[in-house]
Design a protein around this nucleic acid. Sequence first.
DNA 1: GGGCCGTACTG
DNA 2: CAGTACG
DNA 3: GCCC
Length: 638
Amino acid sequence: MEIFHHLASSLLDPSENKARFVDHCHALHSRVLKLPSRSGVNNSHRFVALALCVCSHLCGASIDSAFCVLQTMAPSDPSAEGACSREQLAQVCKTEWLPAVNELNLKKFCNDGEGAKLRRLFHDYYIAFVPSILFSHSRAALLLDLVRENGGEGKVFAASEMGFREASTLIREKTSPFCNAIVCADVNLICKYSTSYQLDARPPKWLRDSLRDCRIKHPSLYVKKYEEKNCSPAKRKPHEANISCIHLPSPTKRPRSTVAKVLTAEMVKPAKDHNPSFRSPREKEGAEADEFRGQASSPLSSRRGERDSKLEQPSAKPLSWACEIRTSFSGGDFPMNEKICELLGVVQESCLMKKDQFRATGYQRAIARIRALRQDITTVDDVAVLTSGKGIGTKLERKIIEIVKTGRLLQAENVLENAEGTAVRQLCNVWGIGPVKALHLIAQGIKSVTQLRDAVRHDSQILDRNQKIGLRHYEDLLLRIPRRHVAELEKFVRMVVKSVDQSLDITVAGSYLRGKKDCGDVDILICGSSEQLRFGFVKVVKEMRKKGVLTDDLTIGQGKYFGIFRFPGRPHARVDLFAVPHEEYPFALLTYTGSAIFNRYVNSKVDPNCESVDGNCNRHPIFGDTNTCLLVAIYEGR
DNA sequence: GGGCCGTACTG
DNA sequence: CAGTACG
DNA sequence: GCCC
């Protein structure tokens, strides 16, 4: 019922309407309780389904979009992520609720104004989510932002009015070039997103114009030079509280070329020009393509099949962009996959402890790939699904088969029994302590966090400043942060930021933006012009400290702040603040949204020899061709 | 057998 | 510089 | 660990 109250309070202002609305929902609610239970569908699923129907009915939108709206409005509602698949929910909607909801005619509770408000609300999410079929949902936010900033919004995205089919066509027509144009520009540029270059202005007019018209204006305009800035701001230490400004952009250490880089006109070409498969999705069918499609489609597109048959949607778009990386799927119920990931995770961690980072990366990629799967690996035959792609070779295959067959992994058990390994693992969980430090400590006879605390009491020299902070909050920092708490922090920080400078705004990036159901830390981008950030960023930090939310500072660097926050009555948690000038925003958002594995993938595509205008400069690996993203399911980390 | 991301802070 | 961290 |  909470969902309905939520729904009612967000949508219906006059309390009379609201009460009646809730009454009707109560009626539906009691109807739910009388329904017989069916396999895989419990009553909480029914509530969700009911809420979906209400949404859908009120807005005249598809159940799928309703799902997105609902998820956003009540993201932490546990029933929304239960074992019931989206397909099942849709089924429940159709068979059990849609008639009842239509019959009630809930629309009468919204007068025109409210109806418009509701539609607007829906519309906003629609914009944000529809592209998530074409782009992964985390990139969709980026797209949305860029599109809005460039005034392309209204016309292009009258999505909810048109219904899904037209919208998706439009988006395919318009937004892909948009996205390609900005974010994908030049991989080299993206990878240097924040610190190496400074654009003159944002958004440059030439770019704005061509985005608005979806056309290249004057080719010469697209050639832009990015010159190295070599200012070197003074270093500041976190405990020196009297910092008053930061320097943006950061001083640049350019590891590679020093030659000016260029953005070529190619970056604003529509995607179809680069990507022959863009428009002709069904060209390369074949078993491999099918499997890829099945494996790596985004959550929304997983229902494509159904929609196809129902609406006869002309061309279900296959993946064309490498950014459509499937994010690991938390809503599913794949016990064996989880088991495999858990056991491989143990081994992965042990590799990390042994400083065998590359082996660890190997495991990490494999785990991410399995997490992204939406089919449970229960038989040895299923394992073939994994080995046919990249990232999982013979040795991992053997281990996975072992797990599938026996439910155990000998190697993992050995690791867990190993006393030293356990000690290293525990110590490494302290923020600031890595494998080397852990081994040092063990050499001193310190084998657990408890012992470490004792030891520090006697000799505070054994840990540095940050490690002590990490140790102090050891237990708290191990906890994952529920989305709902992140959302609250977001609200709070935005409030603080606005109070410091109206023109600044924030974006919560990281795993939150990737839609994870909980997060290890919170990454917040504070966006504004360089000038405003220069003082504004530090003020924000100070202000938050003043309000008692920041309990410890870990580091304060050029435009970044790592620290620890706590809301009263809640555990401490890690928060990262990044000052992001407008001109860097798309790139910063891209990197800070991650995942880490995705970033590595992107970075690995950078051609170090690319130093000037030439065709090779503009490959588009992020939104690139399907062929390169078969691997991609594995790029979603935690 | 050799590669595996790029960057930035701390001490 | 190595170690640790960020995505 | 995987991939070339």
